[in-house]
C-alpha cells in the first residue's frame, strides 16, 4: 500500500484546498471529517481529476469513541502516512460569557484532544524511511490575546507552541512540523462577509486559500516552522513580539470592542 497524507477537517474550504493541492502533487489521500456524504463527494471529485487514490472515513473528532473507531480503522486497514494536515477546528465568535458549555467543550475536544491524539496516531502509522510532514493550522490570532475570539486565539496559541515544541523533539527522526498562521480565510460566504465588513484591512490581510495551501506545503517540504501568508500579516506577527500582551489586548479592544 502506498503511503498517504492524512487530512482532518477535509471537507471544509481550507481542507478541500489542501486536499486538492496534495492531489496535484500526486499524493494519495486519507480524508476524515464528520459527514460521510461530503467526504465521498470530495473523494470522487479529486480521484477522478488527479488520478490519485483517495480513501476516507467519517469521524466526529469531538467524540472519543468516534476517534477510537477512526484509529481502529486506520490500524485494521494498515494505512501508512507520510504526512498529517490537522485542519479540523471550530470558531465560535463572541464574548466568552455568551458561549454555551457545549461550545466550550467542543473547542477543547476538537482543537486540543483530537489534534493531539491525531498527531500521536499518525506518527505511529508513519511510513518508515521517509520524511514525515505535520502541518497544524493555527492563526494570526495566536500571536495576540483577542477579545471576542478569546478561546479561539488561546487554543491557536496552544497549537503554535505545541507544534514548535514537538518540532524540536521530532527533528532528528525525519519529521518536520509546520504551523500555518493565516488571517482571514475566504472559505465560505459567512467568512467572505466577515472579511468584507473589515473593509480595507480585511482585504489586505486576506489571501486565497488555494495559494495558502500551496505555499504551506512548500514551507513544510522545506522544513520551515511557521508560515504567515501575506506581508501585512507577517508584519503584524513581528509586531506582536514587541508589544506587551496587556497593551495588545487593550488596542484590539479599541478596534473591535
Amino acid at each position: 500500500m502506498r503511503s498517504m497524507i492524512c487530512i482532518t477537517g477535509a471537507t471544509g474550504g481550507l481542507g478541500r484546498a489542501f486536499a486538492v493541492e496534495c492531489a496535484c502533487r500526486g499524493w494519495d489521500l486519507f480524508l476524515t471529517d464528520i459527514s460521510a456524504d461530503a467526504l465521498e463527494t470530495l473523494a470522487c471529485g479529486i480521484s477522478s481529476t488527479y488520478m490519485v487514490n483517495v480513501d476516507f472515513y467519517p469521524s466526529d473528532l469531538t467524540d472519543v469513541s468516534s476517534r477510537e473507531r477512526l484509529f481502529k480503522h486506520i490500524t485494521e486497514k494498515g494505512l501508512i502516512f507520510h504526512g498529517l494536515i490537522n485542519i479540523a477546528g471550530p470558531d465560535y465568535e463572541g464574548p466568552f460569557a455568551q458561549r454555551t458549555p457545549e461550545q466550550i467543550r467542543t473547542i477543547l475536544r476538537l482543537n486540543i484532544e483530537a489534534n493531539l491524539e491525531m498527531t500521536f496516531e499518525a506518527l505511529k502509522h508513519r511510513e518508515k524511511g521517509r520524511s514525515f510532514r505535520i502541518i497544524n493550522v493555527s492563526s494570526l490570532a495566536s500571536f495576540y490575546p483577542m477579545l471576542i475570539k478569546a478561546t479561539y486565539a488561546a487554543y491557536k496559541r496552544f497549537l503554535l507552541d505545541f507544534s514548535l515544541a514537538i518540532r524540536e523533539e521530532l527533528r532528528r527522526k525525519g519529521c518536520t512540523v509546520t504551523v500555518l498562521c493565516p488571517a482571514g480565510m475566504p472559505t465560505n460566504p459567512p467568512c467572505i462577509h466577515a472579511i468584507d465588513i473589515q473593509g480595507f484591512m480585511g482585504r489586505i490581510t486576506t489571501k486565497n486559500v488555494g495559494y495558502v495551501a500551496a505555499k504551506t506545503i512548500d514551507y513544510a517540504l522545506k522544513g520551515r516552522p511557521v508560515y504567515i501568508p501575506g506581508l501585512v500579516n507577517k508584519i503584524l506577527g513581528i509586531i506582536s513580539r514587541f508589544v506587551p500582551s496587556t497593551t495588545a489586548a487593550r488596542l484590539i479592544y479599541e478596534r473591535w470592542g
Partner: peptide
C-alpha cells in the same frame, strides 16, 4: 466569485 472558493468536489 471574488475569492478562490471550491465546490464540494474540490473544483474552483
Amino acid at each position: 466569485s471574488s475569492w478562490y472558493t471550491t465546490t464540494p468536489e474540490g473544483f474552483e
